[in-house]
Amino acid sequence: MQKVVDYIEERRKSYENHDFFSRLLANESLPAEKRLAWGPSVVPFIMGYSDLNKYVFRKEEGGAQSDQLQVLLNAHTYEEDFHWQWMLTDLEKLEADKVMPLSDTARVLWGADFKHSRRLCLELAALAAAAPTYAVFAMVESIEAVSITIFRHCQGITLRDGRECEFFGTKHYLAEASHGIKSPEVEEERLPSLDATQRTEAIRMVDRVFSLFDDWSAALLRLALENGDHNRRYERMIQESKDLLPEAETAAAAAFH
C-alpha cells in the first residue's frame, strides 16, 4: 500500500501544476475575492462529500472493525464531519450568501453552473460503490492530497475587509494537515501490503480520481474567471431554470401524443 501512497504524492505534485493554481488560486496579482470566486460553486461537492463520508466510505457493520484500512477510513470520516460548516460561514465573507426562497436555492444548486461539483460526487460514489477497501482507501488518500494542495494555496488570502476565510483559508489547511490518515505512523506501520493485482487496481483508482479533479478544477477556473459577481450569477441561474419550464412542459405534452 505504501507504493500506492507514494504514487499519490507523485500525482499530487503534478496536480499542483494545474492552471487552477497558476492562473487563479496562487496568482497574487489578483484580488482575493477573484482568487476565491469559485467558492460557492463547490457547495454541492462539499455537502455531498460529507454524505460520502457518512454513507459510502464509513462502514462499521459486520467485520469492518477487523479490516485495518476500513478502521482508518472510518476514523477519517469522523474527522471530516464538521468542515462543511466552515464553508457555509465563508459564504457570507465572500458576499455569496444571498437570502432567497428555497425554490430559488434549488435552482442555483442544481443549475448548470454548479454541475461540475454535483457530477464529481456522483462519479466518486459510483467508483467507491463497487471497489474493495484498499481501492477506496486509495481514493480517499487521493482526495485528501487534492484537498491539502488547494487549501495550502488558500492560506493567507485576505479579503478586502481584512478577514481570512475559515474553510478557504489557513484554519482548514491546518485541519487537513493534521488528519490521522496522513500521519507518518499510519503510513509506516499500519498500511497492509498489496499484491501486484491489488496495487494495479489501487493505482488505477488514483489515476481516475485525479482525472476527475483535473476536470473539476478546470471548471472552477472557468467559473471564477468568467464572473465574480455572485448575486448576478444567482439571478441568471434562477431565470435560466424558470425559462426551462415552458420548454419542458411542451416536451412532456408532446410525449403523450
Score class of each variant (00 low, 15 high):
residue 211 S to V: 03
residue 62 G to L: 12
residue 107 R to D: 14
residue 183 S to Y: 14
residue 170 T to W: 03
residue 140 V to A: 03
residue 83 H to C: 04
residue 67 D to R: 06
residue 37 A to K: 02
residue 231 N to Q: 12
residue 54 K to A: 15
residue 198 Q to L: 04
residue 53 N to P: 04
residue 169 G to S: 08
residue 103 S to I: 02
residue 38 W to Q: 10
residue 22 S to R: 15
residue 11 R to D: 00
residue 143 I to P: 00
residue 48 G to N: 08
residue 34 K to T: 15
residue 180 G to F: 08
residue 183 S to V: 06
residue 204 R to G: 15
residue 22 S to D: 15
residue 200 T to K: 10
residue 143 I to Y: 12
residue 37 A to L: 03
residue 221 L to N: 08
residue 144 E to C: 09
residue 93 K to M: 07
residue 178 S to Q: 11
residue 146 V to C: 04
residue 89 T to H: 13
residue 253 A to L: 14
residue 167 F to T: 10
residue 62 G to I: 03
residue 34 K to G: 03
residue 143 I to Q: 05
residue 180 G to I: 01
residue 138 A to M: 07
residue 206 V to T: 11
residue 18 H to A: 10
residue 13 K to C: 02
residue 94 L to A: 10
residue 196 A to Q: 06
residue 121 C to D: 09
residue 106 A to P: 01
residue 238 I to A: 09
residue 186 V to L: 04
residue 215 D to R: 11
residue 78 Y to K: 09
residue 80 E to T: 05
residue 159 L to Y: 09
residue 9 E to N: 07
residue 59 K to I: 11
residue 143 I to K: 00
residue 127 L to H: 03
residue 173 Y to F: 15
residue 181 I to K: 00
residue 117 S to Y: 00
residue 1 M to N: 02
residue 123 E to R: 11
residue 34 K to V: 13
residue 226 E to I: 04
residue 83 H to P: 08
residue 230 H to Q: 12
residue 75 A to E: 14
residue 99 V to E: 13
residue 77 T to D: 08
residue 244 L to N: 04
residue 171 K to M: 13
residue 170 T to K: 13
residue 89 T to G: 07
residue 57 F to R: 02
residue 14 S to H: 02
residue 121 C to S: 10
residue 215 D to T: 13
residue 58 R to A: 08
residue 231 N to K: 07
residue 125 A to T: 04
residue 138 A to L: 04
residue 232 R to Q: 14
residue 119 R to T: 08
residue 101 P to Q: 09
residue 194 L to I: 00
residue 18 H to T: 04
residue 188 E to N: 10
residue 82 F to T: 11
residue 203 I to V: 15
residue 71 V to T: 12
residue 139 M to T: 03
residue 140 V to K: 00
residue 161 D to C: 02
residue 124 L to S: 06
